[in-house]
Simulated scan of single mutants.
Amino acid sequence: MAIELDVATRLSTNLVHVYKLFGSVRHHAPRFHEAIEPTAYPLLFALGVRPMRVSEIADAIHSDLSVVSRQVSHLADLGIVEKRPDESDGRASVIALSDEGSEAIRRMQDSRGHWFQELMTGWEPADAEAFDAFLVQFIDTLDGQICQLRSGPKSPSTSTTTHP
């Protein structure tokens, strides 16, 4: 069953507001490493899951391959990531976090976790758990939509969505 248009509109407006607030936080929050741009954090978090090829990183973080390639080069120069041979294809390489990169991710996650604990002090634990579950559901839905959009236009009979 579809949600009502007024609910969808409120959700859209509220999510844009949250996006803007997080942008403001990003501009005012201290950096975890002087030379790592906050725009590279998603790349680092993706590599925290497992080593990946540059193209896999770009897909995972929904970014342009050339942007990710530049970020990887910069992070490799800093010693935050390292290139390793791809065990499944010796001609290719994967990007992995270095020990310093793993430590930077751990510090970021701990800091964010403490900040969210403080931010949500007045919340009931069950409400925070429910919010997290709904957020994961929304993320999965949005990720699926992005994958559909990337795969190209569908015939009118299979898709009625023409914009994100």
Results as ranks from 00 to 15, higher is better:
D99F: 06
F45K: 11
S102N: 08
H28E: 08
Y19L: 14
R112I: 12
G90A: 15
L44M: 15
L15I: 12
C147Q: 09
S151C: 06
S24Q: 04
E4D: 11
T121S: 01
T141K: 11
I139S: 02
A46Q: 09
G48Y: 12
D86G: 14
E124N: 08
P156H: 08
W115F: 12
Q71F: 05
L149K: 12
V68H: 07
S55C: 07
Y41I: 14
R112D: 00
R150D: 08
L44G: 11
V18Y: 09
H74C: 10
L75C: 09
G90N: 13
F116A: 07
M1I: 09
G23I: 04
Q117Y: 03
D89A: 15
V25G: 00
E34R: 10
G122K: 03
G101F: 06
R150H: 14
D64M: 13
G122N: 07
S63L: 15
L43M: 12
A126T: 08
F138M: 09
P164F: 15
T160Y: 07
G23L: 03
I146G: 14
P153M: 15
S98K: 08
T13W: 07
L142F: 10
G113S: 10
L47P: 01
F22R: 10
V68Q: 02
S111P: 00
D140T: 11
R106C: 00
V81T: 14
R31P: 07
D89M: 06
T121E: 03
H28W: 05
A60Y: 03
L135F: 15
H33S: 02
Y41G: 00
P153K: 12
S24K: 13
F134A: 15
